[in-house]
Amino acid sequence: MIPVVADNLNIEFTTMPSLNYKMNIDDEIIINKCDELEAMKQVIYKILNTERYQYLIYSWNYGIELADLFGEPVFYVVPELERRITEALLQDDRIESVTDFEFDTSKRGTVACTFTVNTIFGEVEAERTVLY
Protein backbone atom coordinates (compact mmCIF):
# COMPACT_ATOMS: atom_id res chain seq x y z
CA MET A 1 0.00 0.00 0.00
CA ILE A 2 1.54 3.28 -1.13
CA PRO A 3 0.62 6.43 0.79
CA VAL A 4 -1.27 9.07 -1.16
CA VAL A 5 -0.33 12.73 -0.78
CA ALA A 6 -2.92 15.40 -1.40
CA ASP A 7 -1.94 17.83 -4.16
CA ASN A 8 -2.44 20.98 -2.12
CA LEU A 9 1.13 22.25 -2.32
CA ASN A 10 0.18 25.18 -4.54
CA ILE A 11 1.20 27.85 -2.06
CA GLU A 12 1.58 31.48 -3.09
CA PHE A 13 4.46 33.32 -1.50
CA THR A 14 4.07 37.02 -0.85
CA THR A 15 6.63 39.71 -0.21
CA MET A 16 6.64 40.95 3.35
CA PRO A 17 5.72 44.60 3.85
CA SER A 18 8.55 46.98 4.61
CA LEU A 19 6.87 48.63 7.62
CA ASN A 20 9.30 48.47 10.51
CA TYR A 21 10.03 50.02 13.88
CA LYS A 22 12.30 53.07 13.55
CA MET A 23 15.60 52.64 15.34
CA ASN A 24 17.46 55.63 16.68
CA ILE A 25 20.87 54.02 16.64
CA ASP A 26 22.75 56.85 18.36
CA ASP A 27 20.39 56.94 21.36
CA GLU A 28 19.74 53.18 21.30
CA ILE A 29 15.96 53.54 21.39
CA ILE A 30 13.04 52.61 19.16
CA ILE A 31 10.74 55.44 18.17
CA ASN A 32 7.71 55.33 15.92
CA LYS A 33 7.67 53.36 12.65
CA CYS A 34 9.18 53.76 9.20
CA ASP A 35 8.44 52.37 5.77
CA GLU A 36 9.94 51.84 2.32
CA LEU A 37 13.33 53.55 1.77
CA GLU A 38 13.86 54.49 5.42
CA ALA A 39 13.05 50.93 6.47
CA MET A 40 15.50 49.61 3.87
CA LYS A 41 18.28 51.73 5.37
CA GLN A 42 17.65 49.99 8.67
CA VAL A 43 17.51 46.56 7.04
CA ILE A 44 20.88 47.20 5.39
CA TYR A 45 22.36 48.43 8.67
CA LYS A 46 21.08 45.38 10.56
CA ILE A 47 22.29 42.85 7.97
CA LEU A 48 25.77 44.39 7.82
CA ASN A 49 26.09 44.54 11.61
CA THR A 50 24.88 41.03 12.41
CA GLU A 51 27.49 38.28 12.28
CA ARG A 52 26.04 35.31 10.40
CA TYR A 53 25.54 32.04 12.36
CA GLN A 54 26.04 33.74 15.75
CA TYR A 55 22.42 34.24 16.83
CA LEU A 56 19.81 31.48 17.00
CA ILE A 57 16.99 33.95 16.43
CA TYR A 58 18.14 34.65 12.86
CA SER A 59 18.05 32.35 9.85
CA TRP A 60 21.42 31.14 8.57
CA ASN A 61 20.74 33.30 5.51
CA TYR A 62 20.71 36.48 7.61
CA GLY A 63 23.77 38.58 8.39
CA ILE A 64 27.32 38.73 7.11
CA GLU A 65 30.48 36.76 7.86
CA LEU A 66 33.27 39.16 8.83
CA ALA A 67 34.95 37.65 11.89
CA ASP A 68 37.21 35.37 9.87
CA LEU A 69 38.66 38.30 7.88
CA PHE A 70 40.66 39.43 10.91
CA GLY A 71 44.34 38.68 10.37
CA GLU A 72 44.05 38.20 6.61
CA PRO A 73 46.08 40.31 4.14
CA VAL A 74 44.41 43.35 2.60
CA PHE A 75 44.60 41.96 -0.95
CA TYR A 76 42.36 39.10 0.26
CA VAL A 77 40.03 41.22 2.40
CA VAL A 78 39.01 43.76 -0.27
CA PRO A 79 37.53 41.41 -2.91
CA GLU A 80 36.16 39.08 -0.25
CA LEU A 81 34.42 41.97 1.50
CA GLU A 82 32.73 43.00 -1.75
CA ARG A 83 31.52 39.44 -2.35
CA ARG A 84 30.27 38.98 1.20
CA ILE A 85 28.43 42.31 1.34
CA THR A 86 26.72 41.57 -1.96
CA GLU A 87 25.81 38.03 -0.92
CA ALA A 88 24.45 39.13 2.46
CA LEU A 89 22.31 41.94 1.10
CA LEU A 90 20.87 40.03 -1.84
CA GLN A 91 19.23 37.60 0.60
CA ASP A 92 16.51 40.26 1.02
CA ASP A 93 14.17 40.12 -1.97
CA ARG A 94 13.61 43.90 -1.84
CA ILE A 95 17.27 44.48 -2.71
CA GLU A 96 17.93 44.24 -6.44
CA SER A 97 21.69 44.84 -6.64
CA VAL A 98 24.74 46.20 -4.85
CA THR A 99 27.04 48.37 -6.97
CA ASP A 100 29.70 51.11 -7.03
CA PHE A 101 32.07 49.66 -4.45
CA GLU A 102 34.90 51.90 -3.30
CA PHE A 103 37.54 50.85 -0.80
CA ASP A 104 39.80 52.98 1.39
CA THR A 105 42.77 51.09 2.83
CA SER A 106 44.78 54.16 3.85
CA LYS A 107 44.30 53.51 7.57
CA ARG A 108 46.44 50.58 8.69
CA GLY A 109 44.43 47.51 9.67
CA THR A 110 41.14 48.95 8.41
CA VAL A 111 39.18 48.70 5.18
CA ALA A 112 36.45 51.30 4.72
CA CYS A 113 33.97 50.33 2.03
CA THR A 114 31.25 52.50 0.49
CA PHE A 115 28.70 51.21 -1.99
CA THR A 116 25.23 51.73 -3.44
CA VAL A 117 22.34 49.40 -2.66
CA ASN A 118 19.60 49.40 -5.30
CA THR A 119 16.26 48.51 -3.72
CA ILE A 120 12.72 48.36 -5.07
CA PHE A 121 12.16 51.69 -3.26
CA GLY A 122 15.25 53.49 -4.59
CA GLU A 123 18.99 53.75 -4.01
CA VAL A 124 20.69 53.75 -0.61
CA GLU A 125 24.30 54.83 -0.08
CA ALA A 126 25.85 52.56 2.54
CA GLU A 127 29.20 51.95 4.16
CA ARG A 128 30.93 49.33 6.26
CA THR A 129 34.32 49.44 7.97
CA VAL A 130 36.16 46.22 8.74
CA LEU A 131 39.24 45.56 10.81
CA TYR A 132 41.60 43.04 9.27
Rank of each mutant, 00 (worst) to 15 (best):
C34M: 15
K22L: 13
E87P: 00
L66K: 00
D7M: 14
E65K: 03
D27S: 12
E123D: 12
R108G: 04
I64K: 01
S106M: 09
C113N: 10
T114C: 10
L19M: 14
L9Y: 13
I57P: 02
K41N: 15
I25N: 07
V74T: 10
T119K: 02
F121N: 01
V77P: 07
D7K: 15
Q42T: 04
K22M: 13
S97W: 12
S97F: 13
I30D: 05
T110Y: 05
A112E: 06
F13T: 14
V78G: 03
A6N: 13
N8I: 15
Q54M: 15
P3A: 12
G109V: 13
P73S: 08
N8H: 14
L81W: 11
F121D: 05
S97T: 13
I30K: 04
T116F: 00
V5N: 12
L56D: 09
S59F: 01
R128A: 01
Y132G: 06
T50A: 03
F70C: 12
T86P: 00
D93V: 15
Y58Q: 01
L81K: 08
P3K: 15
G122H: 04
F115C: 07
P79M: 08
K107M: 02
V77D: 02
D93E: 15
I47V: 07
G109C: 13
L131F: 07
N24M: 06
I29G: 05
L69T: 06
C34D: 15
S97R: 14
L81A: 10
T14F: 06
E51Q: 14
I25H: 07
K22R: 15
F121T: 01
Y53Q: 11
C34R: 08
Y58N: 01
D93I: 11
T116G: 01
